[in-house]
Design a protein around this nucleic acid. Sequence first.
DNA 1: ATTATAAGACACCTTTCGGTGTCGTGTCAA
DNA 2: TTGACACGACACCGAAAGGTGTCTTATAAT
Lengths: 109, 109
Amino acid sequence: MSVNNHLRDVFDAIADPTRRRLIRLLAEAEEIPLHELTAQFQMGRTAVSKHLTILKEAGLVLDRKVGRETRFRLNASPLREIQDWLAFYSKFWSTNMLRLNQLLEEEEE
Amino acid sequence: MSVNNHLRDVFDAIADPTRRRLIRLLAEAEEIPLHELTAQFQMGRTAVSKHLTILKEAGLVLDRKVGRETRFRLNASPLREIQDWLAFYSKFWSTNMLRLNQLLEEEEE
DNA sequence: ATTATAAGACACCTTTCGGTGTCGTGTCAA
DNA sequence: TTGACACGACACCGAAAGGTGTCTTATAAT
């Protein structure tokens, strides 16, 4: 129900550094209009808007029109999928495993 | 030391579903040669090899030559970066926040 | 000695990505 | 009511992504 109807893979959505910066900005404020977000980047409004569309398709962002501006806000819950995915592998990076891998790495060179 | 010298962004490396499947396969075995990994996919050897190169560049995979085959194994520790990144946002998907966002979502449509 | 296997190294192709600029329209301000 | 602003919707572009096939070389197996 209302989850997993996403057209866009969440892993794909967070792959781009610009989009991760957008997520960060939106996490630090309730709601931010497009022109204000755009001001934080060097690229143009169209590019930022495209990134926000991708985040929307992944369910990571919601938007609403207020007057002539479009305001965006974060919806972090789809990130849970990443966390679930990670949980499976966390057993591989216990401090002991890390040390072991480093040793094997050096051994091979 | 030996960390963060990666040519490739870890977020980028795990964005592709084929690469995530490779990671999963490598998590379930000690070491797997390329031809055996290739057998698990529909695409050709060259494509699989390219994906493994990308995983290597992100530090997620190690390889060594044994006879005529190249064997790969997982090095999960770079995934820690993803976990650290996620940790910051986990406060946004507490069950209360999730319910609130769902309500706001419905309200807007 | 010969043949089959494993894989690196390329060249190549099509599609997607990440950006640009422009045009048209609704909204707010003077 | 005129002008500035915010934005969506395109069309467009170069570069990167994700595949393919082929050639060559090293290693194993017969």
